[in-house]
Amino acid sequence: MNYMTYDATDISTPTDDAAKQAAPEAVEPQPLRASGDEHPTDAPLSVHDLTVAYHRKPVLWDVDFDAPQGKLIGIVGPNGAGKSTLIKACLDLVPKASGRVRVYGQPYDEQRGLVGYVPQRETVDWDFPVSALDVVAMGRYGKIGWFKRVSKAHRRASLDALERVGMADFAERQISQLSGGQQQRVFLARALAQDAQLYFMDEPFAAVDAATEQAIVNILHDLRDAGKTALVVHHDLQTVPSYFDWVLLLNMRVVAAGPTDEVFTSDNLQKTYGGKLTLLDQAAEAMARQQ
């Protein structure tokens, strides 16, 4: 595995990078904000000119970035900025109006085994008649394949994943009897059980207790230490600098993307969150009205 090779190109000095941000026409190929076909082929995730629309109203517009290898990447932006949609589009869960997504240089459906996913907790019915271990075992289904039962080895792997999130004692507990934070950890364990290289996490920190938040942060750090990459939708701006190496500021389009200490500036945040009714929004409204 060539985790480190891409890292090397990615670590550039702040001034250097700021200059590139300011001058996107730079001749020299740049890893952070490449355009056209200049995307590196070995990036865990590269998104090319992605546009997604719901009922013809654009939700994401020309999103284009490469996620660097082995980083914790925060996806930050206001409500309705398209953060979840970006993840879903990467996972082929919503149709793309245009653009393409590559995972380690290949289309997603050829790389599923390398990708783990933590959906938002509220998207499922926690009254479902399964235990915590059953849910985590779903992370192994892809490896188990059609028609076969969950074998001992896969149960073992699922239990290990639960252990890693500190939930081994709750393996047999029915999921409705878990607290919100515990449910979130079960979801995380399910993604860990996938044993992936690239993780998408949709608001794993939403409405969890402090202990769970810390547990999740620790796991993220473990993942990074093991050379994995994680894209995490995050809401709490306060904690962004301490949790993430890299941020993607999103509001329908990419406002900025890059190392946290360069990109996570009040100026960029103002661009991301301030003045909701940009020209882009107005155009989107107009398109929706047209229909």
Partner: peptide, 16 residues
């Protein structure tokens, strides 16, 4: 197991 994952979390199932 396929029906179980479909009923519990269809978008996760699709992502897999």
């Amino acid at each position: 197991k396929e029906f179980a994952i479909l009923c519990f979390d269809d978008s996760y199932a699709a992502s897999q």
